[in-house]
């Protein structure tokens, strides 16, 4: 049922946009193409940022820095009964969506989807976003030098989401 809903959302929205446009007598074809044109410019604006950010992320992934960091943080995490298997995910989640997905798959495969670690990993993955990527790409679309408090607020939100994932899973199951 939920699966059906999630695959039909996009087609339903498109149908709604097209029929509503026709009904309101919008010249939908030329409106679409002129809108699409603005999209091209945006992608070119963010391209250099995308290159910069993906270089750094893929170097970090390959370097083994994650495992070292995990060993350092382990003692603190035992306080809230944080499942250690999910630590690499918590660190990687704000940095890289693809790498996080790989970590979650691995946790689900080895511990099962209804294990403590499997549930925490799923909730963590579902409730947070790839913060660095979003910030870099969104700010690349415009020419802002000073993003003020954005990064701090976003990272505090991530931390809250990660801690909440652990606590909510303990509470629910």
């Amino acid at each position: 049922m939920l699966n059906l809903i999630s695959i039909s959302i996009t087609p339903i929205l498109l149908l709604l946009i097209i029929t509503h446009g026709l009904f309101k007598r919008v010249n939908i074809f030329s409106t679409f193409t002129s809108g699409a044109k603005t999209g091209i410019q945006t992608v070119f604006n963010i391209l250099p940022t995308l290159v910069a950010i993906l270089i750094a992320i893929s170097m970090f992934n390959a370097s083994g820095a994650l495992e070292l960091l995990g060993k350092l943080l382990a003692p603190i995490l035992n306080i809230i009964n944080f499942p250690l298997e999910t630590l690499p995910l918590a660190i990687m989640r704000p940095i890289s969506g693809g790498a996080s997905l790989a970590i979650v798959s691995n946790i689900l495969k080895t511990t099962g989807i209804s294990s403590y670690a499997g549930r925490v990993a799923s909730v963590m993955m579902g409730s947070t976003e790839t913060t660095f990527y979003v910030i870099a790409v969104y700010f690349a679309a415009i020419r802002i030098k000073n993003m003020r408090h954005t990064l701090k607020a976003a990272l505090i939100a991530d931390l809250a989401g990660i801690i909440a994932s652990v606590i909510v899973v303990q509470f629910f199951f």
């Binding site: 679409f32 809108g35 963010i46």
Partner: peptide
């Protein structure tokens, strides 16, 4: 990483045009 940025951008280019286009229709209507 550098190479995958370009592949990502090319994929994004199509999707970006698509949604910017539909967005304009939804805005106009």
């Amino acid at each position: 990483g550098a190479a995958s940025a370009i592949t990502t951008a090319i994929t994004l280019l199509g999707i970006m045009c698509m949604w910017s286009g539909f967005m304009s229709i939804a805005e106009q209507s």
